[in-house]
Design a protein around this nucleic acid. Structure first.
Length: 547
RNA sequence: GCGGGUGUAGUUCAAUGGUAGAACGGUAGCCUUCCAAGCUACACACGAGGGUUCGAUUCCCUCCACCCGCUCCA
């Protein structure tokens, strides 16, 4: 799946993220923390731009969704009602022979004969020596090795098949096949419907261990069972729980939605793939409440809506795979789910799940809380529980996808020396770019250039994130902003002060005449093309590009 | 959680049982009239903890983290 080139690309992206300050390992100087990551100065801008854009798309440019920000800690009853306490913990057992893990509650009951072994007799060979004389004689002893094990075989099968599995087990524990003289049988037993053995090979399973995916914590300073709650494993529940309050104050009618961006926590068994699977992560979720029966059509609408959104942040439709989650893989509450997946270098992985949750959540909370959560439909003059369609996207995953999609290396040739070198560039769409423009004086040792540049800088700072740089040569500064994904470079040069020497057309389309002052070079990140633009036109030009 | 791999500066790499070098990058200064030019100076590393040893970055153990494959991912 992940070929060496893809792994190499991922490694480069990880290195760039650190080098330029997008993403650092959490607690790095203490050796890190598995599944936790920090966003540096550029990373936080990128992430914030992404979230802001989502927020604007959901709550600003449409009028059927309102915003919300729920607390991370909630009454523990919420997690019982939602089903998380019961279903978000997995009882797992491990096959002692293969080390494979299984859900304890999904082991098929077995009947048959169990052979219990105390251990084995191991062959020990010692060389005989008489005085100083080496001989070729050996003594062989059978040494007992205690290591209990058991195998279940179906009725009618001989002990030999149990012995075969048991021998494999002892071999897997480091005892060479040739040294096993015999198995030390303790007893046999007939069992009915036992779930203590692996149906695939009859091997004994380990004791059940519970893996709770929710982070348990205590509210208040005293740690007793009555104060237990959990860090939320998803942001959704606060929106369901506050459905009535939000509906009341927003004076909305169905269909309408509640949008929230916030942290969520899952004690993932195995965090992997940089920030992709983290224990602390951020979600962007909409709970969209619709009239009964209209869930399926809204599910389709949301799928299209969200696909268009990913295109708007620079992820082409062709790179998004729409997975229609099959019935058997769907969560118990779901009546239909699409997963939107992106082609990461490490494989095709989920960015967003769009689920038709039916009335499940509101119903659960209504039952558990005893408070009515029904909606009164003025037209139909009746009360009912709305259905819910939930587009739930991972912020960190999307940031990572955006980084992977933006990362590019290209070979550029120096015109004078003919030397070829690699240019690394992050091709963010301007609306996501952490820094919108680099602002440079052509030379730093010319005070009048520097002064004018600072003027341009100050005029743009209230509108957008820009960065001033005067170090090194102009070319070096351009390359540096390429790596940071800054779409525009603005350079104040002598023509800014003295007037242009050659007539041209401005980036805004208006003509620039010879002698005209107050113009700057506008350099484009992706094409490396340069053109002139009047300083006065800069704010409007740039703002239009970054919205 | 299992198996495999990796861990020396921000990055990419060296060397060594006697506490480490380079290149690029970074910072400062000089210089520089549009794509990583040049000169000078400076800063920055043996993942953590034990053990062996007179002495450990090097050998051994444990832990941590990252990568890969399984597994897991209501």
């Amino acid at each position: 799946m992940a070929d060496p080139a893809a792994i190499a690309k991922m490694d480069k992206i990880v290195a760039l993220c650190k080098r330029r300050g997008f993403i650092f390992q959490s607690s790095e100087i203490y050796g890190g923390l598995n599944g936790a990551w920090d966003y540096g100065p550029l990373g936080v801008e990128l992430k914030r731009n992404l979230k802001d854009y989502w927020w604007r798309c959901m709550t600003q440019v449409r009028d059927d969704i309102v915003g919300f920000d729920g607390s991370i800690l909630m009454n523990a009853a919420v997690w019982k009602a939602s089903g998380h306490v019961d279903t978000f913990s997995d009882p797992l057992v491990e096959c002692l022979l293969t080390k494979k893990r299984y859900r304890a509650d999904q082991i098929e009951p077995q009947s048959g004969t169990v052979y219990y072994y105390k251990g084995i007799k191991q062959r020990k060979i010692s060389r005989l020596s008489v005085g100083n004389v080496e001989t070729t004689a050996f003594t062989e002893t059978a040494e007992p090795v205690p290591l209990p094990f058991a195998v279940l075989v179906p009725k009618g099968k001989p002990e030999a098949s149990a012995q075969k599995i048991a021998r494999q087990y002892y071999i897997s524990r480091g005892i060479p096949d040739s040294e096993i003289i015999s198995l030390d049988l303790e007893k046999t037993e007939q069992v009915e419907n036992s779930t203590k053995f692996n149906p695939e090979n009859g091997s004994l399973l380990s004791e059940t261990k519970t893996f709770n995916l929710m982070f348990k914590t205590y509210v208040g300073a005293i740690e007793d069972e009555s104060s237990v709650t959990y860090l939320r494993p998803e942001t959704a529940q606060a929106m369901f729980v506050q459905f009535k309050n939000v509906l009341e104050v927003s004076r909305k009618k169905l269909p309408f939605g509640i949008a929230q961006i916030g942290k969520a926590f899952r004690n993932e068994i195995n965090p992997r793939n940089f920030t992709f699977r983290s224990r602390e992560f951020e979600q962007m979720e909409v709970e969209f409440f619709v009239k009964p029966g209209t869930g399926p059509e809204w599910l389709e609408k949301w799928k299209e809506e969200r696909l268009a959104w990913y295109e708007a942040i620079g992820i082409p439709r062709a790179k998004i795979h729409v997975l229609t989650v099959p019935d058997k893989d769907r969560a118990f509450y779901s009546q239909g789910t699409y997963d939107l997946e992106y082609e990461f270098p490490f494989g095709v992985q989920e960015l967003e799940g769009i689920a038709h949750r039916g009335e499940y959540d509101l119903k659960q909370h209504q039952e558990h809380s005893g408070k009515p959560l029904e909606y009164f439909d003025e037209e139909l003059k009746k009360k009912y529980l709305p259905e819910v369609v939930e587009p739930s996207a991972g912020v960190d995953r999307t940031v990572l996808a955006v980084l992977c999609e933006a990362y590019a290396e290209e070979t550029v040739k120096d015109e004078e020396s003919g030397k070829e070198e690699t240019r690394v560039v992050l091709r963010f769409v301007p609306r996501l770019a952490p820094i919108k423009a680099g602002i440079f004086p052509l030379l730093k040792n010319k005070p009048e250039l520097v002064a004018k540049t600072k003027e341009v800088l100050r005029s743009l700072q209230p509108l957008m994130k820009v960065a001033y740089d005067e170090a090194g040569s102009i070319g070096k500064r351009y390359r540096r902003i390429d790596e940071e994904g800054t779409p525009f470079g603005i350079t104040v040069d002598f023509e800014t002060l003295e007037g242009v020497k050659e007539a041209s057309t401005s980036a805004t389309g208006t003509p620039i005449e010879v002698g005209q002052k107050e113009t700057v070079t506008l350099r484009h990140r992706d094409s490396m093309k340069q053109e002139r633009i009047a300083i006065a036109d800069l704010p409007a030009y740039l703002v239009a590009k970054i919205v």
